[in-house]
Nucleic acid binder design. Structure first.
Length: 575
DNA sequence: GCCGTTTTCGGCCCGACTGTTTTCAGTCG
């Protein structure tokens, strides 16, 4: 059983317990454990075999026993009994805005509502209004929320879709009179791979004026709520946006609060309490009632005795402890990247010529570019035969003479790892490349053992330098291949083979949790764009976000090295 | 249900907004 399934089980238990009316701290304990399991860099199943379940934060005696039962039998009696008590389909009702555990429980007990269609039918029939504390407006609001939920399909959107929208909104807000600062916050600022909504924070003396100006923007579709300091809207394009406005004097605490994550904020507030302070978005309140405001975010951390923590780390994955101990990593930045190791041209499935891609690389400030067109078996991508590989090499050499020292071109390949684990080029063909990336594009649904064996075979081929987009997942559309990641990471570390963080926003593969584990066991990484056209070089910032979320530093990122070091490594890491 | 340089028992973050309320519960982030 995978971490994701364990986390989902505990999450469902938390929801059902909450509907049942269990004490809130027990509910929170299940949720915290679920989140902790989700962000575990190792497979819980492995920890279980090693008897290390209790090392997972938030897992105590009771939950360790439950994990043990789940992994032994695939089932959990406690959960099965709970489902007999409370219909598990009620969990979907909680996803409706303005419906929480209390209302869900009452709809169920008093109206017999067991699932989402049941709730909708009850609302349409006017059966919700008239219940204590519920009027016609509450009922209409719930119907609206159900429709919004259906229209959005999945609740989360790609960071690449949300980020440009957020930037345009910030530009509009900065133009509003009285606005002295406007920043994005929330999961967007933390650079999660997908975001549930866009969170924006503005610093201004007269918040109400800013909110009025914001609600008048042409992009706004529907206003979900508004007050003196915050507004919640849905844009015409369906994205949800939240705006907070605070006076500049406490912009720092407000930005810290709005950035989250919630679990990170809870840690900070606990830390504040231990110093006799109460931390909120408005500032630190001493027991005397005296407020200490922070205009700057770094000051918030300083008051707590911490160095500033980069937003990408704020997931309650050990960053507060690391900050307390002075062990925060010096994170990779976009400026650290010197070269691109994975790019395609019209020789295979890219859109542009060698020369156009080389010019674009030079223009974007890259020192070197490795051309890695596909190999012959990837027919849909017009993969290269060995003969075309030789032709391409001559072209690249000629182009290099023309380019001079503006950008260094290297000849590489993205060679297919075939269904049987063989590579798509013979060893003598592979040996002639400057750099070899091996990737899987098909037969991703093979059994765990077979996919893992293919990857291990590729890693152990002495010519392979990098494994491209390891799991093959496409966010929201294709699941990751079932792989023994731990075995792959250990083999890659041993062979000195680098693992790619593919920056394409639909891939982001490795993801943050996996990249962190790979890095922990000593793997080299490469933050590549897999560019198929010049604009794609700009996607690297998304890969950098993942690398930072994975606590990655410059030293073990191959394309942060100078080109000569890359070539020495490519020539010599195999044993 | 978890957890411990205040504790192995008694705590467990903090505030805004909404709707339907004459003072607050529920939801959300």
């Amino acid at each position: 059983m995978e971490n994701r399934q364990l986390a989902e089980t505990f999450e469902a238990i938390g929801d059902l317990l909450e509907i049942k009316g269990e004490v809130v701290y027990k509910v929170l304990a299940y949720r915290r454990a679920a989140e902790s399991i989700r962000s575990q860099s190792r497979a819980v199943q492995d920890l279980w075999r090693e008897g290390e379940l209790r090392s997972i934060p938030g897992v105590g005696e009771a939950l360790a026993t439950k994990i043990d039962e789940l992994l032994h039998t695939g089932k959990l009696k406690f959960f099965e009994e709970l489902k007999r008590e409370v219909p598990v389909t009620l969990v979907e009702v909680l996803r409706v805005g303005d419906v929480g555990p209390k209302k869900a429980a009452r709809f169920w007990k008093e109206l017999g509502v067991k699932d989402l269609p049941g709730l909708e039918a009850a609302a349409r029939a006017g059966r919700l209004q008239g219940m204590p504390g519920m009027g016609a407006r509450s009922e209409a609001r719930i119907l609206e929320s159900i429709e919004a939920l259906r229209a959005r399909q999945t609740g989360r959107v790609s960071i690449a879709r949300a980020l440009p929208v957020a930037e345009r909104l910030l530009e509009s807000l900065r133009a509003v009179p009285g606005v002295v600062a406007a920043e994005m916050a929330g999961s967007l600022r933390r650079r999660r791979e997908t975001v549930g909504d866009i969170d924006l924070l503005v610093g201004a003396q007269r918040p109400r004026d800013v909110i009025g100006a914001f609600l008048a923007l042409p992009e706004i579709g529907r206003v979900r709520g508004q007050g003196d300091t915050k507004a919640s809207v849905e844009l015409a394009n369906g994205l949800a946006v939240q705006l907070w406005v605070h006076p500049p004097e406490h912009f720092g605490t407000a930005l810290q609060y709005a950035t989250g994550s919630q679990a990170h904020n809870v840690r900070l507030r606990e830390l504040a309490q231990s110093k006799g302070l109460s931390l909120s978005e408005h500032g630190f309140k001493a027991s005397s009632g005296k407020m200490r405001e922070c205009a700057d975010e770094a000051e918030v951390y300083a008051v707590l005795g911490l160095p500033w923590i980069a937003p990408e780390l704020r997931e309650d994955r050990g960053e507060v402890q690391a900050a307390l101990e002075g062990h925060l990593p010096e994170l990779l930045t976009l400026a650290d990247i010197r070269g691109e190791l994975h790019a395609h041209t019209d020789w295979s499935d890219g859109s542009n010529t060698l020369e156009e891609m080389a010019e674009a690389a030079a223009a974007s400030g890259l020192e070197y570019l490795v051309i890695t067109d596909h190999s012959k078996s990837l027919g849909v991508a017009n993969g290269l035969t060995p003969e075309r590989v030789r032709q391409q090499r001559r072209k690249i050499e000629a182009l290099q003479r023309k380019l001079g020292d503006r950008v260094r071109l290297l000849h590489g390949t993205e060679v297919e790892v075939l269904a049987d684990g063989q590579l798509d080029f013979a060893d003598d063909v592979l040996a002639a490349f400057d750099l070899v990336t091996a990737s899987v594009h098909s037969s991703l649904r093979q059994s765990r053992d077979r996919v893992t064996a293919r990857m291990l075979a590729a890693i152990r081929n002495p010519h392979v330098d990098i494994i491209g987009h390891l799991t093959g997942r496409m966010i929201g559309t294709r699941d990751a291949a079932d792989l023994d990641l731990e075995a792959v990471f250990l083999a890659a570390a041993e062979q000195g083979v680098a693992l790619e963080i593919n920056s394409h926003p639909e891939r982001l593969d490795l993801n943050d949790v996996h990249a962190r584990r790979a890095s922990e066991v000593g793997c080299l990484l490469a933050v590549n764009t897999d560019a198929h056209r010049p604009e794609h070089f700009g996607l690297r910032s998304y890969g950098i976000g993942i690398a930072r979320r994975a606590w990655v530093t410059r030293a073990n990122v191959v394309n942060a090295w100078e080109v000569e070091q890359v070539l020495r490594w490519a020539a010599g890491h195999a044993r």
